[in-house]
Amino acid sequence: RPMNAFMVWARIHRPALAKANPAANNAEISVQLGLEWNKLSEEQKKPYYDEAQKIKE
């Protein structure tokens, strides 16, 4: 299954978030990633939607 825009973004940002929160488990990191993603504007998300579309094609 191809990655969606959030997954493209999260793949880039997960390592830094995990390093900054070494005690957090994957579920907690995923929740935090979701919160951070939701704070982004549509303009900030656009490159990730574009990349996800390329992956689908």
Rank of each mutant, 00 (worst) to 15 (best):
R11G: 11
F6A: 01
A16M: 15
P22Y: 03
E43A: 14
Y48F: 10
L33R: 00
A10V: 11
N38H: 05
Q44M: 06
A5D: 01
E57W: 04
A5N: 01
M3I: 15
A10Q: 07
W9P: 00
G34E: 15
Y49I: 08
Q53M: 11
V31A: 14
K39L: 10
M3Y: 12
A23I: 07
M7T: 10
N4M: 11
P47R: 07
N26E: 12
R1N: 13
I12D: 08
N4F: 08
A24Q: 05
N4R: 04
I12P: 01
A27P: 03
A5Q: 01
E36K: 07
N4I: 11
W37L: 00
V8M: 08
R1P: 13
Y49P: 00
N26R: 07
A16S: 10
K19A: 14
V31S: 07
R11L: 13
P15N: 07
Q44S: 08
A23N: 14
I29R: 02
N4Q: 08
K46Q: 14
Q53D: 12
K45C: 01
A10R: 03
P2E: 14
E28D: 10
S41E: 04
R1Y: 12
H13Q: 07
N21P: 01
R11F: 12
Y49D: 04
K19C: 07
N25I: 04
E28I: 08
N38I: 10
N38V: 04
I55A: 04
F6H: 01
W37R: 00
L17Y: 15
R14V: 04
A16W: 08
A18C: 06
W9M: 00
E57I: 06
N21T: 05
V8S: 04
N38T: 08
L17P: 01
V8N: 03
W37D: 00
P22F: 02
W37Y: 02
L35A: 10
V31W: 12
I12N: 04
A23V: 07
H13I: 06
Q44W: 03
E57R: 03
N38G: 13
I55C: 06
P15T: 08
K54R: 14
L33S: 00
R1D: 11
A18F: 08
Q32H: 04
A5C: 02
S30L: 10
W9N: 00
Y49C: 04
N4C: 09
R11M: 12
I12R: 07
K19M: 11
I29G: 01
A5T: 01
K46E: 05
I29K: 01
K45R: 10
Q32F: 13
E28H: 06
H13G: 02
K54N: 10
N25R: 04
R1H: 13
A24M: 15
N21A: 03
V8H: 05
A16R: 12
I12T: 07
H13M: 14
N21V: 02
E51F: 10
K39V: 04
D50A: 11
M7L: 12
N25Y: 03
V8F: 11
I12Y: 10
V31C: 07
K45F: 01
